[in-house]
Structures are given as structure tokens and as C-alpha cells.
Simulated scan of single mutants.
Amino acid sequence: MIDVEKTPYAALLLRVTCGVLFVLHGAYLKFFVFTMAGTTKFFASLGLPEWLAWTVMLYETIGGIALILGIYTRWVALFFAVHLLVITFFVHIGNGWVFSNKGGGYEFPLFWAIVCIALAMMGGGAASAVRAETPGFAR
């Protein structure tokens, strides 16, 4: 049974937590810890163009802020879910399950993708700033 009184606050907690994690992963980790020089070299080692590192850093940071504020939560969470599933199956799957494996396993990005899918299904919950007005995908 779903507690309809507390569910909006559970969605708020999930939304803000995911948003903070994306900001930390995008801005803090890629820009300040690994530096953009290191991040672009990592992307190049995967056979990806170096400019994509900047793009990913920007949309993880901007999308994370959008989640924190509750701006189009369902759409942002759906975008991140697809992003994480692509990363899971094209970057981490060959490294095994455990994320502490060399190169990072796929347990963390897969779990995070599932959390984003749940958030996209649930909506932003309490204190959302902007809600999607698409029929069937509102709030």
C-alpha cells in the first residue's frame, strides 16, 4: 500500500539526492578531481571525442541542478536513466559487477539508472518548481 501523504516527500528526497549526486559527479568529480584534461583523456581512451567530456560534465551539472529544484523532473530523470543505461552497457559491463573492479563495474550505474527510472515514473514530488505539462507524463 502506498502512503499518499508521505509519497511526495519521498519523491522530494529521491529527487534532491539524485540531483546532488549528479552535480557532484558532473562538476566536482569531472572538473575538480579528475580535471577536464584528465576527463577528456579518459573519454578519448574509450574511443569517444574529447569534446563529449565537456558536454557530459555540463548536462550532468545542469540536469542535477534541475533535479534539485524540481524542474521537469520526469524528463530529466528519464534522460539520465538512458544516459546511465548507455554507460552501463557500453563502458562498464565488461568490467564485471562490482564497481570497485578495475575500470569500475556496472553495479553502481545500473542501480542509479533504475533509481532514475523510478523517479521518472514517480515525478518530482513536493516542492517541485516546474512540472511537465505533457498529458500522461505530468508532474
Rank of each mutant, 00 (worst) to 15 (best):
L14P: 00
F31W: 09
A37S: 13
M57N: 10
V16Y: 01
L14W: 03
A37L: 07
A11K: 03
G19I: 10
T35L: 04
L13A: 15
V16M: 08
F43C: 02
T55Y: 09
L12V: 05
F42W: 15
Y59K: 05
M36K: 04
E50I: 07
A44G: 07
Y59S: 08
L21Q: 04
L46K: 14
G38Q: 08
F34N: 13
M57P: 04
S45K: 13
L12C: 02
L29V: 13
L52F: 14
H25K: 03
L12W: 04
A53N: 04
K30L: 06
R15N: 10
H25C: 11
V33Y: 09
T39H: 02
L29Y: 13
A11L: 11
T40Q: 15
L24I: 14
G19F: 06
L12G: 01
A37R: 12
A37K: 14
L58G: 08
F31M: 09
V33P: 00
F42L: 12
T35V: 10
T35F: 04
F22C: 04
T39L: 02
E50N: 04
K41A: 15
T17P: 00
L48Q: 11
F32G: 03
V23F: 09
L24G: 06
H25P: 02
F31N: 00
V56P: 00
F31T: 12
A37I: 11
A37D: 15
L24W: 08
L13G: 15
F34E: 10
L48P: 01
F34A: 10
T17H: 00
G26Y: 03
H25M: 11
V23T: 05
V23R: 00
F31L: 12
A37E: 15
P49E: 07
L48C: 03
M57Y: 06
H25T: 13
G26I: 07
T55S: 05
R15Y: 09
L52N: 02
G26K: 02
A44C: 05
K30A: 08
E60I: 07
F42Q: 09
Y28S: 09
V33Q: 12
M36H: 08
A11I: 05
K30G: 05
A11V: 03
A53K: 07
V16D: 01
L46F: 09
S45I: 13
H25G: 12
F22M: 14
T17F: 04
K30E: 07
T35I: 10
L46G: 03
W51G: 02
S45L: 12
K30D: 06
L58S: 09
P49Y: 11
L46E: 10
L58W: 13
T40L: 03
A44H: 10
F42A: 12
V33C: 02
L24R: 02
V23L: 03
F32W: 14
W51P: 02
F42K: 07
Y28C: 05
F32R: 12
E60Q: 14
F31D: 00
R15E: 08
S45V: 12
E50R: 11
G38I: 11
L21P: 01
R15Q: 10
K30Y: 09
Y28G: 08
E50P: 00
F32T: 12
V56T: 15
E50Q: 14
L14E: 01
Y59C: 12
Y28V: 15
F34C: 00
T40C: 05
G26W: 03
C18F: 10
A27D: 01
T40A: 13
A37Q: 14
F42P: 00
L24Y: 09
V33M: 10
L13S: 14
L52R: 02
A44D: 13
L14R: 00
F43N: 01
